[in-house]
Simulated scan of single mutants.
Amino acid sequence: MKLDIAGVGVTLDGKPILDGVSLTVPQGSVVGLVGPNGSGKSTLLRTVYRSLRPLTGAVKLDDADLWSQPIRASARRVAAVLQEGGSSALTVAEVVELGRTPHHGMVSRATAADREAVRVAMDRAGVTELAARPMASLSGGERQRVHLARALAQEPSLLVLDEPTNHLDIRARFALLSTVRDLGITTLAVLHELDLAVRSCDHLVVLDHGKVAAAGNVLDALTPTIFREVFGVHAKAERHSDGVVRITYAADPLGDL
């Protein structure tokens, strides 16, 4: 399904955080949301997974306004993986099973469909062998994969990721984002590391001071001008002969800005 964010504005404590933000995430694509700290990235995600109601504008999934739907109905369509937090006394299987909550009442028993959804989610996220392990015993990368499995157990049409690679080592970062790309689920992800974003996303949206500064494919969005004016560095993104886009920083990235 396609996500459309149209003219979204958010004000917190009398301070404008987002100002008329519009973007589209095409069906099945991975769109990265990037920008300096405080640019409004996580705030925008909160309007998508219904943690923060926008003051203006609309958030639509296949032309249906998510904020006009019952919360349980939208929770069946949108799943969020937030920044990796603390551990839990629950086992991996129990955490993944929580993803089925929007599909039945709190006192309902798990059905065969629930059990199959959990099995498939754990397999897709690569955590099946961890099922009986307590969350407290896992590494940061393993925990993020479990949270991804929990989101997949919701069987969502849209996946929302808020800095999913935060605190992970480099191998775990690449592995997690490779898994996300292979899912084929429409995905909007806040990514702090530009080097990972250019390798992992189909399109990028650059936020700056609550507004869209650039959007499009990776090379169109991250121009030398955007690097300089938004991120405050001298750099350029180029597609190399192996097909991979890489960022090259000037010898003095901060010089003569």
Rank of each mutant, 00 (worst) to 15 (best):
M1Q: 14
K2V: 10
A6D: 12
V8T: 12
V10G: 07
L12P: 03
P16V: 06
G20Y: 03
T24I: 13
S29A: 15
G32I: 04
P36D: 10
G38M: 09
S39F: 01
G40D: 06
G40K: 11
K41M: 00
T43W: 06
V48S: 07
R50K: 07
P54L: 06
K60D: 10
L61D: 08
L61S: 07
D62W: 09
W67R: 01
W67T: 01
A73H: 13
R77L: 13
A80P: 10
V81D: 08
Q83F: 08
S87L: 10
S88P: 11
G99C: 06
H103F: 05
M106E: 02
T111A: 04
T111W: 06
T111S: 13
A113P: 11
V118G: 01
R119C: 00
R119A: 09
A121E: 07
D123T: 15
A125I: 04
V127G: 04
V127L: 01
T128R: 13
A132C: 06
L138A: 07
S139W: 01
E142G: 04
Q144Y: 03
H147V: 12
A151I: 05
A153M: 04
L158E: 00
L159H: 04
L161E: 03
H167K: 07
L168M: 09
L168D: 07
F174L: 15
R181N: 02
L183V: 06
T186S: 08
A189Y: 08
A189D: 09
A189W: 06
L191C: 00
L194V: 00
A197V: 03
V198T: 00
V198F: 02
S200R: 00
H203F: 10
V205E: 05
L207V: 10
D208L: 11
V212E: 05
A215K: 13
A215V: 11
A215M: 14
V218C: 05
L219T: 12
T223G: 05
I226Y: 08
F231Q: 01
E238M: 15
R239Y: 14
R239F: 14
R239G: 13
R246H: 12
A251T: 13
